[in-house]
Amino acid sequence: MKYQPVPSEIGPERITVMQGQAHVGSGRSEILTTVLGSCIACCLYDPVAQVGGMNHFLLAEPQGGRGTVSDETYGLYLMEVLINEMMKKGASKSRMKAHIYGGANMHAGMTRIGDANAAFASKFLNDESIALVHRDVGGESARRVDFDPVMGRSRCRTVERVAAPTQTPTLRPQKVRGDVELF
């Protein structure tokens, strides 16, 4: 596994990026962090604007959700939220570089949802012409990811299975599920 060290100075605020969230660095000293099982975290960074951010998503819907189309739509949504928020802070999509982490298949014999999540992330980045500079995906271990959004550096460590987040997807925000408002 390839590590890209995060500065160890005391002081940076640690911000946890939960499943279903995207967070862009404020420009202050801070570390974006998350723990992943089969979920994917995508870290994007524009080295010129020194703007970075992380999202954390799982394509699978909770029970009662819709089909594969809405699954993909949800992944696209969280990628687009991250990209748009970075662009608002001066980043350019054409300069963005990506790291992706997670996508573990935590339970042998079950659907390899981690592989599907990782494949989605890789395809998205390829389709959007965003350079994928580092990936650490697959396997059967949970991961903790730390990302410095100002320097664009990340660190990924495997963690004990017991520390892995639940495999049950959290409910998605209903207020952003295709609401239509005609003026």
Binding site: S70, R177, F183
Partner: peptide, 20 residues
């Protein structure tokens, strides 16, 4: 603008809005 649809979109809702 005629209307606003929030992503992630629901294809059925988009279809309905387009028809309207």
């Amino acid at each position: 603008a005629t209307g606003w649809i929030v992503k992630p979109f629901d294809a059925d809702k988009l279809d309905s809005a387009l028809r309207r």
